[in-house]
């Protein structure tokens, strides 16, 4: 497979971009405030560059491998578990990750518009309805249970002022 087609390549590139941007930004600061970020940023960028290069030449990472004493035993443990392992294809894995991301993003969106209480009911209820194909009674109980738990923890115990939603008069803070 071409190195550019690997997800790990793009992730390594993204990771490398972080220390490099810090170094570039730090250069514009006066001598003292830039010192520590540069001391950390330059070697970190170098390390990132080696990791990225190892996507093409994996041997580059060999000197940095750490011996894992328990790895052999752990490998043996995999076959011992009573859990039934189901092998997923990459496409299935990606689909499930996207689903999880989707649920989290939906929760944040619903909170943004109508606040926490409706979102705390809706998301868990819909989640088990869609994934666990639960009955309507279980679905409603799950939604109500989670909403009550959240209210008890945050409103009652922490006494936090929870977000009520843009539709109910909240104003977005300045970013």
């Amino acid at each position: 497979m071409s190195v550019f087609k690997r997800t790990s390549f793009w992730f390594s590139l993204l990771m490398l971009a972080i220390p490099v941007s810090f170094v570039i930004m730090a250069i514009s600061y006066p001598a003292k405030p830039q010192l520590f970020p540069l001391i950390i940023g330059i070697p970190t960028s170098l390390a990132g560059a080696i990791i990225l290069a190892s996507e093409k030449w994996p041997k580059l990472m060999k000197p940095f491998d750490v011996a894992d004493f328990s790895a052999k035993l752990r490998k043996g443990a995999d076959g011992n578990s009573g859990a039934e392992e189901v092998e997923l294809t990459d496409k299935q894995k990606a689909g499930r990750i996207m689903a999880a991301m989707g649920w989290m993003a939906s929760y944040i969106t619903i909170v943004f518009f109508v606040g926490f209480n409706p979102a705390n009911f809706l998301i868990p209820a819909l989640y088990i309805r869609v994934h666990a194909k639960s009955s309507w009674l279980k679905t409603i109980l799950m939604g109500v249970g989670t909403a009550v738990l959240m209210w008890a923890m945050f409103d009652l115990v922490m006494q936090a002022q929870m977000w009520k939603g843009i539709f109910f008069g909240e104003i977005m803070p300045q970013i």
């Binding site: 998301i123 989640y127 994934h131 929870m162």
Partner: peptide, 27 residues
Amino acid sequence: SNYYVVPVVIVLCLGAAFAINGNFYDM
């Protein structure tokens, strides 16, 4: 089942992120 655990943890985590400072961007 994991299906009962995942939504509760998601909701708890994101709610807690807001509750600390009352800042939506923390979520």
